[in-house]
């Protein structure tokens, strides 16, 4: 350590961060656990009664839709989204890693647009795109000789529609992480593999993926937790309907707590969201726990 550097001073530098996170992240995350065990109404937040596991039991059995149904929808939404994000993101990253491809930054900037724009704006953009009468998608369907559909209002099509929007939106995030992964590969390895006569496929399977797999895993973990949070794009396109067919956990929580005013029940859903994130956070830290020398 340098001259005149007292370790205790370090605490002063991190103090603002600790205060901010303690009050606005850690405290609410703990508080929601306690609130989920109480009966609380939005209209009367001061009056809370201990209710044990009542909120959870109601959610499992008699709330419509049930927690199980919302969980099922969420898992479907997240699983399909993440698979496509990683696949398309990794493919594009590989294409943009080819030495002779021109305008790499221009392509990347262009792809970023879908990630940079606000979720609510993206949501309305697609609501417009899916609009049954004047929407572009149905126009294209008619051009192709297919029957127009009401995408966002059809119980069978609403979920695929919001998944497609979410895939569209999340690809750039994967692209960035996978690009970082590919850039971490020493180019001498490519040359060595080429000297050994490896073709493009062998290069991918034997050189790239083994090295990039940490980044793929990082991408999958972060993207999974992010996708469980998706809220406003779904709210804008379907509002959770039709018939609750697109009511994923975040919307489910919002509806129970802030639309129907059952804060206790909403908190219990919040705890489920929290639990899912914690599982992935633990996996994340176990895999990526930086070595001692890096801390």
């Amino acid at each position: 350590m340098g001259i005149g550097r007292r370790p205790m001073v370090g605490y002063l530098y991190i103090l603002p961060l600790l205060v901010l996170l303690g009050l606005l992240s850690v405290y609410p995350a703990l508080s929601v656990l306690w609130m989920s065990l109480q009966s609380i109404e939005l209209a009367n937040l001061g009056a809370a009664e201990f209710a044990g596991l009542k909120n959870y039991l109601l959610l499992l059995k008699s709330t419509s839709p049930t927690l199980g149904e919302a969980l099922g929808l969420s898992f479907l939404f997240v699983f399909v989204s993440v698979v496509f994000h990683v696949f398309i993101g990794f493919s594009l990253a590989n294409l943009l890693a080819i030495p002779w491809v021109k305008g790499k930054n221009a392509w990347r900037n262009l792809y970023m647009i879908s990630w940079v724009a606000a979720g609510i704006v993206i949501g309305y953009t697609f609501r417009f795109f899916f609009e049954p009468r004047a929407g572009v998608l149905n126009y294209l369907m008619r051009l192709a000789g297919l029957a127009p559909r009401s995408w966002a209002a059809d119980p069978k099509l609403a979920m695929p529609a919001i998944i497609i929007v979410n895939i569209w939106r999340g690809v750039p995030y994967s692209l960035i992480i996978e690009t970082a992964g590919l850039q971490s590969i020493n180019t001498e390895l490519y040359d060595a593999a080429r000297v050994d006569g490896a073709n493009a496929w062998q290069m991918l399977m034997r050189v790239k993926i083994p090295i990039v797999k940490d980044f793929l895993l990082l991408d999958i973990i972060l993207d999974t937790t992010d996708t469980f949070q998706v809220f406003e794009t779904i709210l804008a396109i379907t509002g959770g309907g039709p018939l609750h067919q697109t009511e994923t956990l975040a919307l489910y929580m919002y509806n129970q707590a802030f639309r129907y005013g059952d804060v206790g029940r909403g908190s219990a859903i919040g705890v489920v969201l929290l639990a899912i994130s914690i599982v992935f956070a633990v996996i994340y830290i176990r895999f990526f726990r930086p070595g001692k020398e890096e801390l």
Partner: peptide
């Protein structure tokens, strides 16, 4: 998750 913290 942000949403889970919203009620508190």
């Amino acid at each position: 998750p942000e949403m889970a913290k919203m009620i508190p």
